[in-house]
Design a binder for these strands. Structure first.
Length: 494
RNA sequence: GGCGCGUUCGUCUAGUGGCUUAGGACGCCGCCCUCUCAAGGCGGAGAUCACGGGUUCGAAUCCCGUACGCGCUACCA
């Protein structure tokens, strides 16, 4: 047994940002670990120096922190199986590479890139499978030692045995078979002394006592190499689980060209981490009942690898938006207030003086009408500044010949109110409608237009109340001045 | 090309031989609520379960084949 408690890891390569597919992989690992009372480990696979990106690790950690996927061992938090950066474990890989060589399961190879390229081209031309021809195996021990002593550039390759069947047991896909004939003598240690993914991940997973390898399906094809490595080293294999891929709308692997793929892009666009987590969790997994909206706690409680399914999933933004709105609405107003204030600072109204009490009222009124926090601003700018214009379509539909006169009366009615509560405005309007024997709508719609400049939004009484008596009256006066009725216009025919 | 994986409404999915005239969700449409817009409630359209064979009294579910899609095929991960 590798470990009594389940231990899983998320092992990203720090190439710049956290990919949404990586987030899904990280999340499933996290959910599995938390569900099983196991450990979630973060390991940085930085063995490709050519792809080193400044600040990528920091960015990754930052993003993981934002979504709330806290790990038990890894960068910054440490742990007893470190270091958690592969670039700091070079000696370890070297040691096991040498062990494999000693056992005849790996060997030094000194081929030049040119020879490799040529070999490849010949194989391609003959329609053969491209793989290393094991030329280095024809070298005598003396030759090898000589070359090594001379400091000739070399790599270490896996010595794949011919014509054997390798089995990969996968929780999601069942037993998958591979013949070793199609497996290349994979480079284990590159000429720069760094290991390739294949060696490093097997060595680290073993040393870090990883019990379950949960990763993307793109790794399934190279898993037989890993299985061989475990067997050659005499190590117990972890349980494998290869997750279905996340796809573009055209079903190709999710990529940058067809939309946002970085988690930070979604964060920047105002998506809630709760929505993103919820959405991504559902891409390839479901709890078996009909629940769609989940908190992280619920996901942890219900998650299981057995319910991950096999086919790739198209990343469909519509549902994400809906989930964002759902999670937004489920938040207490006080929490939304904090987020709104943050958003407010960045908005064009940053210099507008508005207190928390008013913002809270706006939040309450707009909550069912927004999908993003920023819409507490963009969908109701009239709460922050007087309308700069009036929607023509609404004027046409709601601003009748008698509207100015009626609104004037309503204005005077409001003016008489002393320290009015929301209900008082409603009462005043109802009274006026009764006195004049007209429908309330004849007052309400012009009022809404005068106050907001548009035809949609929360209840008018909410608007009047939030704006306050003075401001409302001011806006009514302005509207009376500025809005011309379509009828008036049409009488001015030439 | 080779190897591997996959294929249920537009999308995410339920479904593991009879409970299925294939269920839910998003989106779309309609109705109700209503001062508007939302939210909410109710309802609707939408899937010959990729296709073709088999097995079986009976198949989306099991088997075989085909097609299509995707992944891998690097001194990348």
């Amino acid at each position: 047994m590798i470990s009594e408690t389940p231990r899983v890891r998320f092992a990203p390569s720090p190439t710049g940002y956290l990919h949404i597919g990586g987030l899904r992989t990280a999340l499933y690992n996290y959910l599995f670990a938390r569900n099983q009372n196991g450990k979630f480990i973060l390991r940085i696979e930085d063995t490709d120096r050519k792809r080193f990106v400044e600040g990528a690790v920091e960015n990754l950690l930052d993003t993981l922190k934002w979504v709330g996927l806290d790990y038990d061992e890894g960068p910054e938090v440490g742990g007893e199986y470190g270091p958690y950066f592969q670039s700091e474990r070079l000696d370890i890989y070297k040691k096991y590479a040498e062990e494999l060589i000693a056992k005849g399961k790996a060997y030094y190879a000194f081929d030049t890139p040119e020879r490799l390229k040529q070999l490849r081209e010949e194989q391609l031309k003959k329609g053969l499978q491209t793989k290393y021809d094991k030329f280095a195996l024809t070298l005598s021990e003396e030759e090898i030692q000589q070359k090594l002593a001379n400091g000739e550039p070399h790599v270490v390759r896996l010595n794949v045995p011919p014509d054997e069947t390798v089995f990969v047991e996968d929780v999601i896909r069942g037993r998958v078979e591979f013949n070793t004939e199609i497996i290349d003598d994979q480079i284990l240690i590159k000429s720069d002394g760094f290991p390739t993914y294949h060696l490093a991940n097997v060595v680290d997973d073993h040393l870090m006592k990883i019990t379950h390898v949960i990763r993307g399906e793109e790794w399934l094809s190279s898993t037989p190499k890993h299985v061989l490595l475990y067997e050659f080293l005499g190590w117990e294999k972890p349980v494998f689980a290869h997750l279905p891929l996340l796809l573009n709308p055209d079903k190709s692997k999710l990529s940058k060209r067809q939309g946002d793929v970085a988690v930070e892009d979604y964060r920047d666009k105002g998506y809630l981490k709760e929505a993103l987590i919820n959405f991504v969790a559902l891409l390839g997994w479901n709890p078996g009942d009909e629940q769609e909206v989940f908190t992280m706690e619920e996901l942890i409680q219900k998650f299981s690898l057995e319910r991950v399914h096999k086919a790739g999933a198209v990343f469909n933004i519509e549902k994400l938006i809906w989930l964002n709105a759902e999670h937004l609405r489920s938040k207490p107003n006080e929490e939304l207030l904090v987020m709104l204030k943050e958003e407010f600072k960045k908005s064009e109204y940053s210099n507008v003086d508005i207190d928390d009490e008013h913002l809270l009222l706006i939040i309450e009124a707009m909550k069912p009408r927004v999908e993003f926090v920023k819409e507490f601003i963009t969908k109701c700018p009239y709460f922050y500044e007087a309308p700069t214009g009036y929607d023509e379509k609404v004027i046409k539909k709601r601003w009748k010949e008698d509207s100015p006169g009626l609104l004037k009366k309503l204005r005077d009615k409001f003016a008489q109110l002393e320290n009015p509560a929301k209900e008082d405005y409603e009462k005043a309007l109802n009274e006026l409608a009764e006195e004049l024997e007209i429908g309330k709508g004849k007052l309400i719609h012009p009022l809404r237009l005068a106050l907001s400049g548009i035809g949609t939004g929360p209840g008018v009484y909410d608007i009047v109340h939030i704006l306050g008596k003075e401001e409302s009256i001011r806006r009514i006066d302005t509207a009376l001045e500025k809005i011309k009725t379509p009828n008036t216009d049409s009488t001015e025919e030439k």
